[in-house]
Structures are given as structure tokens and as C-alpha cells.
């Protein structure tokens, strides 16, 4: 039984911000399942390479290290941006957010270069189930980075207009969850697809 008649009053000052954050956490939960399914697809499809390359022939660890470094650093640069928003104001936020955006765009450039070089070799999405699963998994992550980049540009624009600090803080907090999640997914892609794949684990 519940304690009869007791009413807890919660502080409602931050309620809207906390709604956005909580909703974002839920969204990330759903996204986790989506990526889990794509990982599973990749693992079961990577054995059927047909005439195409096997993972070991296709993937190269060396060339992926720099984009990985860039993307993972962007989590830290974004953290700096968030800190500045709380402490000294919006200018530092915009600088660090710009650096984060630059990292993301560079990462996307590397990924585009990687994909086009594979396609140039004739390794397209239709070559084999392995390549199809590879493109879907890594491509979905890339699409998330792209989406995040556009989102960052919008946040930068909102910070530039300096309308209301409250809504910008809300946006920044929701975006933080999304961006760290996208980075975390990359850690798993890096390990499962690139590290294990290039070592010929399957």
C-alpha cells in the first residue's frame, strides 16, 4: 500500500529541460536497438562474401585511426562547449561547438573518401551481403553524424542570435546525449568492424 495521503512536491524550475533530456534518453534507447539489429545483421552477413572481398582484404586499420581520433575527440570538445555555456557564456560555447562541428565534418569527409574508394574498386552495395551489411551499418552511423552536424549548425545559429538562453541550454543538453551516443556507437563499429575485421577475426 502507498503511504496514505502523502504528496511529494517536486521542484518544477527545470522541468521542461528535464523533459527534453529524458525524451532524448528514451530516443537513444530506441536507437540502441536499431544499431544492435544492424550489428547482428553485419555479423551474420559478413561470412557470405561471394565474389567480393572478405573483411580482411577490404578493411584497413591504419586509415581509420585518424577519423576515429577526430570523432572521439569531438565528444570532449563538445563537453568543453557545454562547460563554457554554464560558466562564462556563449562565446566559448560557439568556439568549441565550431571545433566539434569541424571534427564531425572531417570525419564525414574521411568516410565519404573511404566509401568512394571502395566503390571505385568495384565493391558496391550489391557485390555481396557482407558489403551490403557493411554499408548499411557504417552508413547509418555516418547518417547520424551528418544529422548531428546539421543539428550543431542550428544550435550555433541559435547561439549566434542569442535569443533566449533557456531554450539554447535545453537544445545543448538534448544534443549532448545524442552526440555522445553517436560516438559510443562508433567505438563499437571501430572494434567490431574495423579492428576485428582487419585482423581476420571472421
Amino acid at each position: 500500500m502507498d503511504k496514505a495521503g502523502r504528496v511529494e512536491t517536486s521542484s518544477k524550475n527545470d522541468w521542461a529541460g528535464s523533459l527534453d533530456r529524458f525524451g532524448m534518453w528514451m530516443f537513444v534507447g530506441a536507437e540502441t536497438i536499431l544499431f544492435l539489429c544492424f550489428f547482428a545483421t553485419y555479423l551474420v552477413s559478413s561470412v557470405s562474401t561471394l565474389d567480393g572481398p572478405v573483411p580482411k582484404e577490404l578493411l584497413e586499420l591504419k586509415s581509420i585511426l585518424l577519423p576515429t581520433f577526430l570523432l572521439l575527440s569531438s565528444s570532449w570538445t563538445f563537453y568543453r562547449a557545454e562547460k563554457h555555456f554554464k560558466n562564462d557564456g556563449v562565446r566559448g560555447t560557439m568556439v568549441w561547438l565550431g571545433i566539434t562541428l569541424l571534427c564531425a565534418l572531417l570525419f564525414l569527409g574521411f568516410e565519404a573518401h573511404e566509401f568512394t574508394s571502395y566503390i571505385g574498386k568495384g565493391y558496391t552495395i550489391t557485390t555481396s551481403p557482407f558489403l551490403a551489411a557493411f554499408y548499411v551499418l557504417v552508413g547509418t552511423h555516418g547518417a547520424h553524424v551528418l544529422f548531428g552536424s546539421v543539428w550543431m549548425m542550428l544550435i550555433l545559429w541559435h547561439c549566434f542570435r542569442k535569443k533566449t538562453k533557456w531554450t539554447n541550454w535545453k537544445k545543448l543538453q538534448a544534443f549532448a546525449i545524442y552526440w555522445h551516443f553517436v560516438d559510443t556507437v562508433w567505438v563499437f563499429i571501430f572494434i567490431i568492424v574495423y579492428v576485428l575485421g582487419s585482423q581476420g577475426a571472421y
Partner: peptide, 11 residues
């Protein structure tokens, strides 16, 4: 025209 679910190479 990928081959995720097709009978031959797919699953």
C-alpha cells in the same frame, strides 16, 4: 538489389 534476405547468398 542487395542480398540480405535472398535465398542464395542472403539469410
Amino acid at each position: 538489389a542487395t542480398d540480405f534476405y535472398t535465398g542464395g547468398p542472403g539469410q
